[in-house]
Simulated assay, not measured.
Amino acid sequence: MTIDEPKLLAVSGIRVSYVAGVDVLHGVSLDVSAGEVVCLLGRNGAGKTTLINALCGLLPVNAGQVTFDGKSLLGLKPSGIVAAGIAVVPEGRRVFSNLTVAENLAMGAYSRRTGFGPSWHFERVYDLFPRLAERRDQLAGTLSGGEQQMVAMARAMMAQPRLLLLDEPSMGLAPLLIELIFDTINRFAKEGMTILLVEQNAAAALDVADRAYVLERGSIVRSGLAASLESDPEIQRSYLGV
């Protein structure tokens, strides 16, 4: 990756609000190149999920620009953004609780287009998450939190996305499951998947990321190589507990 390489996702100076005249995001800019893992760090209330919702078309962007592969995403419905090649693993997992595991995965593939990335199918997902193979006929709402997170990640991959948005994938999980989730993210990265990872678990996120941004009160306050931020004394104090 070079500094002149075109950005797959480019977010420039966006402002987003829930109430007219009260911005939650204040001119946020970031970018993600193809094949790169970028993490966005921030505490609760910093605006991380607001950003993800804006990128998915769930919230309007009041100012600024969002482009994906050089084309504007502004004004597109969520279905159009998915069709463009973006998949999201939402905060809180949001599986279809009354559908089986296999049916949830099929829902991820309903809008699939060819050519976006490696071919993801049931066998590949079950190889990655053997526990889902064992529970393929079980209602997703009866699974544990960790198993539901696996379903959410697998469902997103079934869409064969060019860009994967991960919103707080470790939230509410036990340490062993957090390790499994980040091992999976690392595997995606090694296969060349482009990922924007939103996380509070700064240590785990910086360990898998190429670059990172820090969001505080709706504004980007720091950015750089993940290794550089990991060794930054202020980041260590504020996010790594050092």
Rank of each mutant, 00 (worst) to 15 (best):
V22H: 10
G115Y: 14
S72Q: 01
Q138P: 11
R155L: 04
A34C: 02
D69Q: 07
I178H: 01
A54L: 03
N201I: 14
G57P: 08
K48I: 09
H121E: 08
A83E: 15
V28A: 07
P175E: 10
D69V: 01
I81H: 03
F188Q: 05
V198W: 03
G21E: 12
F96N: 09
G218N: 08
A154I: 09
G224Y: 06
G85M: 03
D167M: 09
Q148G: 11
S33C: 14
V221P: 02
V38G: 11
G141I: 10
G35F: 06
A203Y: 14
L225T: 12
D167Q: 05
R131G: 11
L58G: 08
V89M: 00
R217V: 15
G47R: 13
N53R: 15
I14R: 04
A83D: 13
E168Q: 07
R211C: 04
A84H: 07
R93Q: 09
R162T: 07
A87L: 03
M171C: 08
A189L: 00
A226G: 09
Y18S: 09
A204F: 05
M171N: 13
A106R: 14
Q138W: 08
V242M: 13
R43M: 14
V214E: 02
A209W: 01
R155T: 06
Q200F: 12
M153D: 02
T142W: 00
G172S: 02
G27C: 05
N44I: 07
S29W: 05
V24A: 12
Y110K: 06
L105D: 04
E168F: 03
T142H: 12
L8V: 08
R136V: 08
W120H: 03
S170I: 05
Q65W: 00
E103M: 04
A156F: 13
L76Y: 13
S238N: 13
E230T: 13
L9M: 07
L143C: 05
S111I: 13
R155G: 08
A204L: 09
W120R: 00
E36K: 03
S223D: 13
L51M: 11
L240R: 04
S111V: 11
A46G: 06
L164W: 04
S29C: 07
L25D: 10
G45T: 05
V151I: 10
G21A: 05
D232N: 08
G117M: 01
K48R: 09
E230P: 04
A227D: 11
G27M: 07
G42L: 08
I52V: 14
I81K: 02
L59T: 04
E230K: 15
V198T: 01
A203E: 15
R43V: 14
R124K: 11
L139N: 04
R237E: 14
V221K: 02
P78V: 12
V28W: 06
H121S: 06
G92V: 02
M150K: 00
Q236K: 12
P118C: 02
T67N: 11
Q149C: 11
I3V: 15
V32I: 03
R94W: 10
A189E: 02
G21Q: 09
M153F: 05
S29T: 15
L132V: 07
A46L: 12
M107Y: 05
S219N: 12
S119I: 13
I195K: 06
I181W: 00
A63G: 12
A227V: 13
L41T: 09
I185T: 04
L41D: 06
S111K: 14
S97P: 11
V11I: 13
A205V: 02
